[in-house]
Simulated assay, not measured.
Amino acid sequence: MTHVVTEACIRCKYTDCVDVCPVDCFREGPNFLVIDPDECIDCAVCIPECPVGAIVPEEDVPTAQLPFIKLNAELSRQWPSITKRKGALPDADDWKDKTDKLGELIR
């Protein structure tokens, strides 16, 4: 079992979750973070750290967000590891409550 970063992270990329991950399973793209499912140990310490609620256990991913399971696995093989917290994207607060952001994802 693993955790999944869902659509709420797109164009926000708050990295509070990165600091608490004991196995460094986060990967960083231009405007989104993903979790490497092969590295995640299902500890759940990242979940309460995400200010937009973008991280959920795989078994609890809402139906509309199911494509993010595959997307996390795919992009985690392409993007570099992130192990230290960084500032959020400059307009993150403008995007944090928006939905239907998949089209905004930069690969």
Rank of each mutant, 00 (worst) to 15 (best):
A44V: 11
D38R: 13
I41F: 12
D91K: 10
E7M: 05
I47R: 02
L105S: 02
G53Q: 04
A64S: 07
C25V: 08
D36E: 06
D94K: 12
T99D: 12
K13G: 07
E58F: 09
D60L: 12
K13T: 04
V23G: 08
G87N: 06
E74A: 10
I106K: 14
T15Y: 10
I10C: 06
K98W: 11
E74K: 14
D94P: 06
Y14C: 13
P80Y: 09
D100G: 14
A64L: 14
D94W: 08
H3R: 11
V20A: 10
I41C: 11
P90S: 01
A54E: 02
H3D: 10
S76E: 08
V56P: 01
E104Y: 10
V20L: 03
K70I: 12
I35N: 07
P90Q: 01
S76Y: 09
P22R: 12
I35S: 10
A64V: 06
I69S: 04
T99C: 02
N31M: 10
T6I: 14
P80M: 08
I82Y: 00
P22W: 07
R85G: 00
C50V: 04
G29N: 06
D16A: 14
I10F: 09
R11A: 11
I69Y: 07
V4S: 04
L102F: 15
E59L: 03
T6H: 06
Y14G: 02
P67S: 08
N31W: 06
D19G: 15
G87Q: 09
A44C: 12
C50F: 05
E39L: 14
R27V: 05
E104M: 15
D97M: 10
I82A: 05
T6Q: 07
I69P: 04
R85S: 08
Y14E: 06
G87K: 11
T83M: 13
P62A: 07
L89A: 00
V56W: 04
E74Q: 11
Q65A: 13
K98G: 01
A73L: 13
W95D: 00
L102A: 14
